[in-house]
Structures are given as C-alpha cells and as structure tokens.
C-alpha cells in the first residue's frame, strides 16, 4: 500500500485547502442565499406580519395556533403524508423499471423510446396542468376511453376518495427525470458483474438481484430522498388544478402554506408553517440517512 505510506502532512493540508476551494462556490451560495434568508424568516415567523415585513413581535404565538387552533393543518398533514406514501413508491419503482426496460441489451431504437418517456416532463407547467385537467375531466378523454372498453367513468379529481390517487397517477408521467437518473446509474454497473453471474449459470433474476440492485442502491437512495423531500412540499397540482378540493381532500401542506401567505396575507403565520415543514422534512431525511448504512452499497465512497 504505497499510496498510504506516501501521505505526508503537506498532502493532508493540501487536501484541506482544496476541499474548501472546490466546494467554495457552493458554500458561498449557501451562506448568501440560504442562511441569511432563513434567519430572516425565523424572525418573520414570530411576528404578526401580514404583507412583507413590519409586524409586531408575538413570540411563539403562531406555533401555538398551528398546533391547537388550526384544523386545516392536521388535514393537510394527513393529505400530504398519504400522498407521499402513494406517490413516491409508485413513481420511483415505475421509473426504475422503465429504465431497466430501456436498458435491455439488444433493444433497437431505444433513443426514440427514451425521448418519448421523457417528453411529458418537459411540457410547460401551465399547459400541463390544463391538459391533465381536461384529460381527467369526468367528460374528458380518460372516461371516454374507459367507457369504450366498458368501465364506468369516475369523477377522478372531483371525488374525495379518488383525487389523491388520481394526482399520484398523473405523477407517473413525470418520471422522465428519475428515469434519466436511473439510466445513467445503470450505465455505471460494470458488465463484468453480469458476465460473472452468467458464467455461474444465473438467470435474469439473479443478475438483477445480485448485480443491478446492489449497484443501484446509491442512485435509489438519492431518488427516494429527493422524492420524499419534493413530494412533501408539493402544491402545484392543488394550486393549478384542484384548489385543495373537493372538500379539502387535496389540501396539500404546501398549498395551505401558499394560500396563507399570498391569498390570506398572513406572512408571519406562513413563515411559522414553513419552519414546521422544514423540521418534518429534516426528520424524515435524517431517518433515511441513518438507515442507509444498512442498504446502500458504495463502491468508491470512503467514509459516510
């Protein structure tokens, strides 16, 4: 292990400097555009500001109100957690299997299929919202297609019990991003592993279980974290399509927050709500990070 022997103190210090240097731009951005605003918003959450700043200091009053006198918070937490539980596994596993499918050896014309799978993700947001609204409309395309094959149409987005599954189902069309990430990850799985398994007489399933899956765990880890964090904050479908309805069945936490801030003009309370959300997201992420040691396999990583 000649490499270790040649490590000198000089090298160690160089490492330190370069470490900060390389991460420099990122750290600067973090300080300037995140820490500062975050601190400001903590103060904001302890005032009774309505528009912008300039309210009176009221301490933790907003937080008290959030936990005791706001029934919509609990509804929105339930809605959001339910949605995460449905949507994240659904979209990530779909993205993974589509990527696997498109990565099959010998498949021709994959370029076109990959592009098609990615296209729904790049339809501009405003247009996309209305397209889905029209497609899922009880008098729209989806019910039309279902009825031609004999399945009765449903109210989808306007049925309290179906709105969350409908939105999660819509999310499948957005897997283009994750699919792209999984494809990149699959490319990184060494062929030698597959060959080794084949030589030992292993089947497709063995290849998947002993080569693909372990090697993909860092990528899966990444997408799961991003998926949970992102989905906990989702609010666009509520804003553009359902407006939290019907009867609050799609009242996402993020939408409740947005409405409190920009429709009800209650900036102070909204700031408090965002901090609550931040803590929740932090907790989830910490849990996943902690359990990751047991299921994520790194080939080139050093410490964790």
């Amino acid at each position: 292990m000649g490499a270790k022997v040649s490590r000198s103190r000089k090298h160690f210090r160089r490492n330190e400097i370069y470490g900060w240097l390389f991460a420099g731009p990122a750290i600067f951005g973090f300080l300037a555009f995140t820490i500062g605003p975050m601190i400001t918003s903590i103060f904001l959450s302890m005032t009774d500001s309505t528009l912008g700043f300039g309210g009176n200091f009221i301490g933790l009053e907003h937080y008290r109100r959030a936990f005791t006198a706001d029934p919509l918070i609990w509804i929105s937490i339930r809605v959001t957690f339910t949605f995460v539980a449905i949507s994240v596994p659904l979209t990530i596993s779909t993205a993974f299997f589509v990527a696997l499918l498109l990565n099959t050896e010998g498949l021709k014309g994959v370029k076109y299929f990959r592009t098609i799978a990615y296209v729904p993700s790049i339809v501009p947001g405003v247009a996309s919202a209305f397209l889905w609204r029209w497609i899922f409309n009880p008098r729209g395309l989806l019910n039309h297609l279902l009825e031609t094959i004999g399945i009765p149409g449903q109210n989808w987005l306007f049925d309290q019990n179906l709105v969350l599954p409908s939105l999660a189902f819509m999310g499948i069309w957005g897997i283009g991003g994750n699919m792209v990430i999984f494809l990149a990850g699959l490319q990184g799985v060494p062929r030698s592993l597959y060959d080794a398994i084949e030589v030992d007489g292993g089947s497709i399933f063995s290849k998947f279980r002993y080569a693909t899956l372990p090697m993909m765990t860092p990528t899966i880890f990444f997408t799961v974290i991003m998926g949970i964090i992102g989905t906990l904050q989702v609010f666009m479908p509520a804003l553009l399509i359902t407006e939290g309805g019907p009867n609050n069945a799609s009242l996402f936490y993020g939408f409740h927050l947005y409405r409190t801030a920009f429709v009800n003009n209650n900036m102070g309370y909204a700031a408090a709500l965002s901090w609550i959300m931040f803590i929740v997201v932090l907790a989830f992420t910490a849990i996943i990070f902690a359990t990751s040691k047991h299921w994520v396999y790194y080939e080139g990583g050093d410490d964790r």
Partner: peptide, 9 residues
Amino acid sequence: SPAEVEGFP
C-alpha cells in the same frame, strides 16, 4: 352536484 358540474367544460 359539484362533482358532475366540474365535469362540464
């Protein structure tokens, strides 16, 4: 009903 009417374009 609201569900039926949301279906109206």
